[in-house]
Nucleic acid binder design. Structure first.
Lengths: 168, 168
DNA sequence: TTTTTCTTTCAGAAAATACTGAAAGATTAA
DNA sequence: TTAATCTTTCAGTATTTTCTGAAAGAAAAA
Protein backbone atom coordinates (compact mmCIF):
# COMPACT_ATOMS: atom_id res chain seq x y z
CA UNK A 1 0.00 0.00 0.00
CA UNK A 2 1.11 3.51 -0.72
CA UNK A 3 2.16 5.64 2.26
CA UNK A 4 -0.28 8.50 1.82
CA UNK A 5 -3.18 6.12 1.38
CA UNK A 6 -2.13 4.13 4.42
CA UNK A 7 -1.94 7.28 6.51
CA UNK A 8 -5.37 8.32 5.36
CA UNK A 9 -6.86 5.00 6.32
CA UNK A 10 -5.08 4.99 9.62
CA UNK A 11 -6.45 8.40 10.47
CA UNK A 12 -9.96 7.38 9.56
CA UNK A 13 -9.74 4.16 11.54
CA UNK A 14 -8.30 5.85 14.59
CA UNK A 15 -11.07 8.41 14.40
CA UNK A 16 -13.89 5.91 14.40
CA UNK A 17 -12.13 3.81 17.01
CA UNK A 18 -11.93 6.84 19.25
CA UNK A 19 -15.61 7.57 19.01
CA UNK A 20 -16.37 4.16 20.51
CA UNK A 21 -14.51 5.34 23.56
CA UNK A 22 -16.04 8.70 24.21
CA UNK A 23 -13.41 10.65 22.29
CA UNK A 24 -14.64 12.84 19.52
CA UNK A 25 -13.73 11.89 16.02
CA UNK A 26 -11.77 14.99 15.12
CA UNK A 27 -9.68 14.85 18.24
CA UNK A 28 -8.77 11.24 17.54
CA UNK A 29 -8.00 12.07 13.92
CA UNK A 30 -5.68 14.90 14.84
CA UNK A 31 -3.96 12.59 17.24
CA UNK A 32 -3.62 9.95 14.55
CA UNK A 33 -2.26 12.45 12.07
CA UNK A 34 0.41 13.54 14.53
CA UNK A 35 1.19 9.95 15.46
CA UNK A 36 2.19 9.08 11.93
CA UNK A 37 3.93 12.32 11.05
CA UNK A 38 7.67 12.35 11.10
CA UNK A 39 7.89 16.06 11.78
CA UNK A 40 5.99 18.61 13.83
CA UNK A 41 2.93 20.01 12.05
CA UNK A 42 1.38 23.46 12.09
CA UNK A 43 -2.26 24.17 12.83
CA UNK A 44 -2.63 25.20 9.21
CA UNK A 45 -1.44 21.82 7.96
CA UNK A 46 -3.76 20.00 10.30
CA UNK A 47 -6.67 22.05 9.02
CA UNK A 48 -5.78 21.18 5.47
CA UNK A 49 -5.04 17.54 6.05
CA UNK A 50 -8.33 16.90 7.83
CA UNK A 51 -10.45 19.54 6.13
CA UNK A 52 -11.54 21.22 9.30
CA UNK A 53 -11.94 24.81 10.38
CA UNK A 54 -9.52 26.87 12.36
CA UNK A 55 -11.71 26.92 15.44
CA UNK A 56 -12.24 23.20 15.39
CA UNK A 57 -8.54 22.52 15.00
CA UNK A 58 -7.64 24.90 17.78
CA UNK A 59 -10.15 23.43 20.20
CA UNK A 60 -9.20 19.84 19.66
CA UNK A 61 -5.49 20.51 19.71
CA UNK A 62 -5.90 22.26 23.02
CA UNK A 63 -7.81 19.29 24.36
CA UNK A 64 -5.09 16.89 23.22
CA UNK A 65 -2.56 19.06 24.98
CA UNK A 66 -4.71 18.98 28.12
CA UNK A 67 -4.69 15.23 27.99
CA UNK A 68 -0.92 15.32 27.71
CA UNK A 69 -0.94 13.51 24.39
CA UNK A 70 0.34 16.36 22.25
CA UNK A 71 2.93 19.04 22.74
CA UNK A 72 3.56 22.43 21.27
CA UNK A 73 6.98 22.86 19.74
CA UNK A 74 8.61 26.05 18.64
CA UNK A 75 10.82 25.75 15.65
CA UNK A 76 13.85 27.95 15.25
CA UNK A 77 13.07 31.00 13.20
CA UNK A 78 9.40 30.11 12.93
CA UNK A 79 6.69 32.24 14.36
CA UNK A 80 3.95 29.67 14.08
CA UNK A 81 3.46 26.93 16.61
CA UNK A 82 3.94 23.34 15.65
CA UNK A 83 2.58 20.22 17.25
CA UNK A 84 3.93 16.81 17.88
CA UNK A 85 2.56 13.67 19.55
CA UNK A 86 4.26 11.22 21.84
CA UNK A 87 4.89 8.15 19.72
CA UNK A 88 5.79 5.50 22.27
CA UNK A 89 2.46 3.77 22.53
CA UNK A 90 3.18 2.63 26.08
CA UNK A 91 3.63 6.18 27.17
CA UNK A 92 0.45 7.13 25.34
CA UNK A 93 -1.48 4.32 26.98
CA UNK A 94 -0.22 5.25 30.40
CA UNK A 95 -1.10 8.88 29.88
CA UNK A 96 -4.63 7.95 28.91
CA UNK A 97 -4.98 5.55 31.84
CA UNK A 98 -3.73 8.14 34.27
CA UNK A 99 -6.15 10.77 33.00
CA UNK A 100 -9.21 8.53 32.88
CA UNK A 101 -8.44 7.18 36.31
CA UNK A 102 -8.30 10.69 37.63
CA UNK A 103 -11.28 12.03 35.73
CA UNK A 104 -13.66 9.10 35.95
CA UNK A 105 -12.67 6.21 38.13
CA UNK A 106 -11.79 8.18 41.23
CA UNK A 107 -14.90 10.38 41.17
CA UNK A 108 -17.00 7.26 40.70
CA UNK A 109 -15.40 5.63 43.72
CA UNK A 110 -16.03 8.72 45.80
CA UNK A 111 -19.63 8.67 44.69
CA UNK A 112 -20.11 5.01 45.56
CA UNK A 113 -18.66 5.71 48.93
CA UNK A 114 -21.18 8.45 49.53
CA UNK A 115 -24.08 6.22 48.64
CA UNK A 116 -23.17 2.99 50.33
CA UNK A 117 -25.10 3.51 53.56
CA UNK A 118 -28.81 3.42 52.96
CA UNK A 119 -31.46 3.29 55.59
CA UNK A 120 -34.62 1.65 54.52
CA UNK A 121 -38.25 2.03 55.09
CA UNK A 122 -38.83 -1.60 55.76
CA UNK A 123 -37.85 -3.46 52.63
CA UNK A 124 -34.80 -5.34 53.79
CA UNK A 125 -34.38 -7.38 50.63
CA UNK A 126 -34.26 -4.29 48.45
CA UNK A 127 -31.71 -2.71 50.72
CA UNK A 128 -29.58 -5.82 50.71
CA UNK A 129 -29.54 -5.95 46.91
CA UNK A 130 -28.66 -2.30 46.62
CA UNK A 131 -25.93 -2.49 49.22
CA UNK A 132 -24.42 -5.64 47.78
CA UNK A 133 -24.37 -4.29 44.25
CA UNK A 134 -22.82 -1.01 45.27
CA UNK A 135 -20.32 -2.74 47.50
CA UNK A 136 -19.39 -5.12 44.68
CA UNK A 137 -18.76 -2.27 42.30
CA UNK A 138 -16.83 -0.38 44.93
CA UNK A 139 -14.57 -3.33 45.60
CA UNK A 140 -14.04 -3.96 41.93
CA UNK A 141 -13.39 -0.32 41.18
CA UNK A 142 -11.06 0.02 44.12
CA UNK A 143 -9.12 -2.95 42.93
CA UNK A 144 -8.92 -1.60 39.40
CA UNK A 145 -7.75 1.68 40.82
CA UNK A 146 -4.98 0.05 42.78
CA UNK A 147 -3.89 -2.09 39.86
CA UNK A 148 -3.69 0.96 37.66
CA UNK A 149 -1.77 2.74 40.35
CA UNK A 150 0.80 -0.06 40.36
CA UNK A 151 0.98 -0.10 36.62
CA UNK A 152 1.51 3.64 36.47
CA UNK A 153 4.20 3.46 39.09
CA UNK A 154 5.75 0.43 37.48
CA UNK A 155 9.26 1.74 37.77
CA UNK A 156 8.97 1.48 41.51
CA UNK A 157 7.58 -2.01 41.44
CA UNK A 158 9.92 -4.79 40.38
CA UNK A 159 7.16 -7.31 39.85
CA UNK A 160 5.00 -5.26 37.55
CA UNK A 161 8.07 -3.80 35.97
CA UNK A 162 9.40 -7.20 35.03
CA UNK A 163 6.02 -8.27 33.70
CA UNK A 164 6.00 -5.25 31.48
CA UNK A 165 9.51 -5.81 30.26
CA UNK A 166 8.55 -9.34 29.35
CA UNK A 167 5.83 -8.22 27.03
CA UNK A 168 7.08 -4.91 25.81
CA UNK B 1 -29.56 8.16 52.87
CA UNK B 2 -32.94 6.85 51.95
CA UNK B 3 -33.07 3.87 49.59
CA UNK B 4 -35.14 5.39 46.82
CA UNK B 5 -33.00 8.49 46.77
CA UNK B 6 -29.83 6.41 46.70
CA UNK B 7 -31.15 4.35 43.81
CA UNK B 8 -32.00 7.49 41.90
CA UNK B 9 -28.54 8.90 42.36
CA UNK B 10 -26.94 5.63 41.45
CA UNK B 11 -28.89 5.46 38.23
CA UNK B 12 -27.96 9.01 37.32
CA UNK B 13 -24.30 8.45 38.11
CA UNK B 14 -24.13 5.21 36.17
CA UNK B 15 -25.76 6.94 33.24
CA UNK B 16 -23.26 9.74 33.03
CA UNK B 17 -20.40 7.34 33.69
CA UNK B 18 -21.55 5.24 30.78
CA UNK B 19 -21.61 8.12 28.38
CA UNK B 20 -17.90 8.72 28.98
CA UNK B 21 -17.37 5.25 27.61
CA UNK B 22 -19.36 5.33 24.44
CA UNK B 23 -22.51 3.85 25.97
CA UNK B 24 -25.64 5.88 25.66
CA UNK B 25 -27.08 7.33 28.78
CA UNK B 26 -30.43 5.59 28.69
CA UNK B 27 -28.89 2.19 28.14
CA UNK B 28 -26.61 2.69 31.12
CA UNK B 29 -29.51 3.92 33.22
CA UNK B 30 -31.65 0.92 32.43
CA UNK B 31 -28.73 -1.28 33.32
CA UNK B 32 -28.27 0.57 36.60
CA UNK B 33 -31.95 0.31 37.41
CA UNK B 34 -31.87 -3.43 36.90
CA UNK B 35 -28.62 -3.76 38.83
CA UNK B 36 -30.18 -2.37 41.97
CA UNK B 37 -33.58 -4.02 41.66
CA UNK B 38 -34.25 -7.03 43.78
CA UNK B 39 -36.85 -8.43 41.40
CA UNK B 40 -37.32 -8.64 37.64
CA UNK B 41 -38.91 -5.53 36.13
CA UNK B 42 -41.33 -5.09 33.26
CA UNK B 43 -40.79 -2.78 30.31
CA UNK B 44 -43.64 -0.68 31.62
CA UNK B 45 -41.92 -0.17 34.98
CA UNK B 46 -38.69 0.78 33.30
CA UNK B 47 -40.52 3.36 31.21
CA UNK B 48 -42.06 4.83 34.31
CA UNK B 49 -38.98 4.74 36.47
CA UNK B 50 -36.82 6.50 33.88
CA UNK B 51 -39.48 8.55 32.17
CA UNK B 52 -38.78 7.27 28.72
CA UNK B 53 -40.93 6.18 25.81
CA UNK B 54 -41.86 2.68 24.87
CA UNK B 55 -39.68 2.68 21.77
CA UNK B 56 -36.68 3.95 23.60
CA UNK B 57 -37.06 1.39 26.35
CA UNK B 58 -37.50 -1.43 23.90
CA UNK B 59 -34.47 -0.47 21.86
CA UNK B 60 -32.10 -0.11 24.77
CA UNK B 61 -33.29 -3.24 26.51
CA UNK B 62 -32.69 -5.16 23.32
CA UNK B 63 -29.20 -3.73 23.11
CA UNK B 64 -28.45 -4.70 26.70
CA UNK B 65 -29.61 -8.21 25.91
CA UNK B 66 -27.32 -8.24 22.86
CA UNK B 67 -24.44 -7.33 25.08
CA UNK B 68 -25.36 -10.19 27.37
CA UNK B 69 -25.85 -7.90 30.33
CA UNK B 70 -29.58 -8.36 30.71
CA UNK B 71 -31.91 -11.31 30.40
CA UNK B 72 -35.57 -11.76 29.71
CA UNK B 73 -37.41 -13.74 32.32
CA UNK B 74 -40.89 -15.14 32.09
CA UNK B 75 -42.82 -15.16 35.28
CA UNK B 76 -45.36 -17.85 35.99
CA UNK B 77 -48.83 -16.77 35.02
CA UNK B 78 -47.62 -13.47 33.60
CA UNK B 79 -47.98 -12.59 29.99
CA UNK B 80 -45.59 -9.68 30.05
CA UNK B 81 -41.85 -10.07 29.83
CA UNK B 82 -39.65 -9.10 32.72
CA UNK B 83 -36.00 -8.20 32.76
CA UNK B 84 -33.16 -8.87 35.10
CA UNK B 85 -29.46 -8.00 35.10
CA UNK B 86 -26.48 -10.07 36.14
CA UNK B 87 -25.40 -8.67 39.49
CA UNK B 88 -21.99 -10.20 40.01
CA UNK B 89 -19.84 -7.30 38.92
CA UNK B 90 -17.01 -9.59 37.92
CA UNK B 91 -19.25 -11.38 35.52
CA UNK B 92 -20.50 -8.05 34.22
CA UNK B 93 -16.97 -6.78 33.72
CA UNK B 94 -15.94 -9.92 31.91
CA UNK B 95 -18.96 -9.76 29.66
CA UNK B 96 -18.15 -6.20 28.71
CA UNK B 97 -14.49 -7.00 28.14
CA UNK B 98 -15.36 -9.97 25.97
CA UNK B 99 -17.72 -7.95 23.84
CA UNK B 100 -15.50 -4.93 23.40
CA UNK B 101 -12.57 -7.14 22.59
CA UNK B 102 -14.60 -8.82 19.90
CA UNK B 103 -16.26 -5.68 18.55
CA UNK B 104 -13.39 -3.24 18.68
CA UNK B 105 -9.99 -4.58 19.59
CA UNK B 106 -9.93 -7.49 17.18
CA UNK B 107 -11.16 -5.50 14.17
CA UNK B 108 -8.58 -2.84 14.96
CA UNK B 109 -5.82 -5.43 15.04
CA UNK B 110 -6.96 -6.83 11.73
CA UNK B 111 -6.93 -3.33 10.30
CA UNK B 112 -3.44 -2.58 11.56
CA UNK B 113 -2.29 -5.80 10.01
CA UNK B 114 -3.68 -4.78 6.67
CA UNK B 115 -1.90 -1.47 6.75
CA UNK B 116 1.49 -2.42 8.10
CA UNK B 117 3.28 -2.84 4.78
CA UNK B 118 3.66 0.46 3.02
CA UNK B 119 5.76 1.10 -0.01
CA UNK B 120 7.02 4.59 -0.27
CA UNK B 121 7.72 7.04 -2.98
CA UNK B 122 11.12 7.97 -1.68
CA UNK B 123 10.59 9.37 1.77
CA UNK B 124 12.22 6.73 3.93
CA UNK B 125 11.95 8.65 7.16
CA UNK B 126 8.21 9.08 6.81
CA UNK B 127 7.80 5.40 6.08
CA UNK B 128 9.88 4.45 9.07
CA UNK B 129 7.80 6.60 11.39
CA UNK B 130 4.55 5.23 10.05
CA UNK B 131 5.73 1.65 10.22
CA UNK B 132 7.11 1.99 13.69
CA UNK B 133 3.99 3.63 15.04
CA UNK B 134 1.69 1.08 13.52
CA UNK B 135 3.91 -1.75 14.64
CA UNK B 136 4.00 -0.35 18.16
CA UNK B 137 0.24 -0.16 18.34
CA UNK B 138 -0.09 -3.59 16.85
CA UNK B 139 2.23 -5.08 19.42
CA UNK B 140 0.52 -3.28 22.24
CA UNK B 141 -2.93 -4.23 21.04
CA UNK B 142 -1.91 -7.80 20.48
CA UNK B 143 -0.58 -7.98 23.98
CA UNK B 144 -3.73 -6.48 25.41
CA UNK B 145 -5.73 -8.96 23.42
CA UNK B 146 -3.79 -11.89 24.80
CA UNK B 147 -3.97 -10.62 28.34
CA UNK B 148 -7.71 -10.25 28.04
CA UNK B 149 -7.90 -13.70 26.57
CA UNK B 150 -6.14 -15.10 29.63
CA UNK B 151 -8.31 -13.13 31.96
CA UNK B 152 -11.45 -14.33 30.25
CA UNK B 153 -10.27 -17.90 30.38
CA UNK B 154 -9.12 -17.54 33.93
CA UNK B 155 -10.69 -20.77 35.04
CA UNK B 156 -8.24 -22.58 32.81
CA UNK B 157 -5.25 -20.64 34.01
CA UNK B 158 -4.10 -21.27 37.55
CA UNK B 159 -1.88 -18.22 37.70
CA UNK B 160 -4.44 -15.65 36.66
CA UNK B 161 -7.09 -17.55 38.53
CA UNK B 162 -5.19 -17.30 41.78
CA UNK B 163 -4.47 -13.63 41.22
CA UNK B 164 -8.15 -13.00 40.79
CA UNK B 165 -9.09 -14.99 43.86
CA UNK B 166 -6.66 -12.89 45.82
CA UNK B 167 -8.37 -9.67 44.97
CA UNK B 168 -11.93 -10.77 44.53
C1' DT C 1 -62.17 -16.58 14.94
C1' DT C 2 -62.07 -12.34 17.28
C1' DT C 3 -60.37 -9.75 21.01
C1' DT C 4 -57.05 -8.47 24.20
C1' DT C 5 -52.49 -7.67 25.74
C1' DC C 6 -48.01 -7.01 24.97
C1' DT C 7 -43.79 -6.15 21.81
C1' DT C 8 -41.45 -4.22 17.93
C1' DT C 9 -40.64 -0.96 14.36
C1' DC C 10 -39.61 3.36 12.29
C1' DA C 11 -40.48 8.10 10.36
C1' DG C 12 -40.25 12.36 12.17
C1' DA C 13 -38.94 15.40 16.20
C1' DA C 14 -35.94 16.77 19.78
C1' DA C 15 -31.73 17.08 22.03
C1' DA C 16 -26.94 16.78 22.32
C1' DT C 17 -22.65 17.38 20.19
C1' DA C 18 -19.44 19.12 17.09
C1' DC C 19 -18.08 22.62 13.68
C1' DT C 20 -17.57 27.05 11.23
C1' DG C 21 -15.86 31.47 10.35
C1' DA C 22 -15.45 36.02 11.46
C1' DA C 23 -13.77 38.99 14.85
C1' DA C 24 -11.03 39.95 18.78
C1' DG C 25 -6.72 39.05 21.11
C1' DA C 26 -1.62 38.25 21.25
C1' DT C 27 2.85 38.40 19.91
C1' DT C 28 6.62 39.53 17.10
C1' DA C 29 8.61 42.33 13.42
C1' DA C 30 9.23 46.73 11.13
C1' DT D 1 4.09 52.88 17.24
C1' DT D 2 2.05 50.52 13.47
C1' DA D 3 1.73 46.53 10.73
C1' DA D 4 1.88 41.75 10.02
C1' DT D 5 1.24 37.14 11.43
C1' DC D 6 -0.60 33.86 14.15
C1' DT D 7 -3.91 32.14 17.99
C1' DT D 8 -8.14 32.05 20.54
C1' DT D 9 -12.95 32.72 21.26
C1' DC D 10 -17.77 32.17 20.64
C1' DA D 11 -22.48 32.93 18.61
C1' DG D 12 -24.75 30.78 15.24
C1' DT D 13 -25.19 26.60 12.27
C1' DA D 14 -24.85 21.91 10.97
C1' DT D 15 -24.53 17.21 11.98
C1' DT D 16 -25.13 13.27 14.64
C1' DT D 17 -27.33 10.84 18.05
C1' DT D 18 -31.11 9.72 20.65
C1' DC D 19 -36.02 9.66 21.59
C1' DT D 20 -41.04 9.66 20.84
C1' DG D 21 -45.41 7.85 19.81
C1' DA D 22 -48.45 5.89 16.75
C1' DA D 23 -49.09 1.99 14.05
C1' DA D 24 -48.15 -2.63 12.82
C1' DG D 25 -46.97 -7.20 14.40
C1' DA D 26 -47.31 -11.34 17.59
C1' DA D 27 -48.96 -14.25 20.84
C1' DA D 28 -52.17 -15.70 24.09
C1' DA D 29 -57.00 -15.61 25.71
C1' DA D 30 -61.85 -15.61 24.89
Amino acid sequence: MELQEAKKQFIAAWGSFGSNWGINRTMAQIHALLLVSADPISAESIMEALNISRGNANMNIRELINWGLVERVVQAGERREFFIAEKDIWVVARTIMRERKKRELEPMLRFLDSVKNVEGGGNEKEIAVFTNTVEGIRKFGGQANQSLESLLKAEENWFVSSLIKLIR
